[in-house]
Design a protein around this nucleic acid. Structure first.
Lengths: 183, 183
DNA sequence: GTCTATACAACGATAGAC
DNA sequence: GTCTATCGTTGTATAGAC
């Protein structure tokens, strides 16, 4: 792995663990094993590094979701596969967690990948759901609810220090969806 | 408002806006108009101040929820009143946002009020829902899903920089609940 | 490209006078 | 109780040699 790569990967880890405000250039240097001068040669500063890291994390998340949503089975199967995919719940969502960072939320460039990712996810989910929903049930709203359940599940689990609330929230949305979609 | 009170209120505001990691003692002093020596006379340090602020914010949130959930109307009415209550969506949930703060999540004392609040909310919601749900639908899971939808709605809205995803998520859960509970 | 040195503000607190 | 002074560390770079 080259130097640039090590910097981006270390930044991704630290942003996931500690957020933007909680991540220092020094910590990135230590984790990556890259020196001060070298880091500032490859990136203009903390913001630039964070942008690269966030963009890659967002792209990874979209790819992982696409693998489930474009997989085999009925629309309902694919949505459930997405919902039930194994996740590192107590670490939180690496994309969603950035929305709580004041310096990310207020920086257009840093926030853009987050906005794009969730908008894309909602569209994909809605497209999969639409043919399985009864007439008159708005797919876009159900898609938003599913995404929110996941993101909120992470929040509840981290508050509890336990994955149980996340799992219950998924159980609940699955129950509601099953009763609405049928089967 | 006395000195202690001004400190706690200023800390609450700052924790909501910037989180724990992003809030400095100095910023608290400036916002409250309380001096350095005075602040450290009343509180042992940043953690102690944050604990008082988080406890109060959590208590406020429970009181506001109780007002809706114990209000007039059918179980469904009360749940919808809670879901539809006016919120400052783009500011995020003052309790939920703390779960993303690494120094809060790893500190038992700071995390406890968050855990207690969501556990209490889930229990109250489940108690209201239970008589309105068809047999075999687990109230605890539906309650977790409702809470998660709210918390996740905040996340999606902040990512978008717009309240629309929050509103859609609420629309979706309302639709699903209505179809399951009946009209 | 990478290294070391330097800079200067902010962080989070403690000390001691009043 | 409140004030000012001081402290050691970290944050976030920039400068210039190699």
């Amino acid at each position: 792995m080259d130097t640039r790569e090590r910097l981006v990967e270390s930044t991704r880890e630290l942003l996931w663990e500690r957020g933007y405000v909680g991540t220092s250039p020094k910590a990135i240097q230590e984790r990556s094993g890259v020196g001060q001068g070298s880091m500032y040669h490859h990136f203009a500063g903390k913001t630039d590094l964070a942008l690269a890291a966030i963009q890659r994390t967002a792209a990874d998340l979209r790819a992982a979701a696409a693998a489930d949503l474009d997989g085999p089975g009925s629309p309902a199967d694919r949505v459930m596969a997405y919902l039930r995919r194994s996740r590192e719940v107590l670490r939180g969502c690496p994309v969603g967690r950035m929305t709580q960072d004041p310096d990310v939320a207020t920086d257009r460039r840093l926030r853009q990948p987050l906005a794009d990712t969730f908008e894309w996810l909602r569209g994909r989910l809605a497209a999969v759901l639409a043919p399985a929903l009864p007439d008159g049930v708005p797919a876009e709203a159900i898609a938003a609810t599913i995404l929110a359940t996941l993101q909120g599940g992470y929040v509840l689990a981290r508050a509890a220090g336990d994955t149980e609330p996340f799992d219950r929230a998924i159980d609940g949305i699955q129950e509601l969806l099953t009763r609405t979609m049928g089967g």
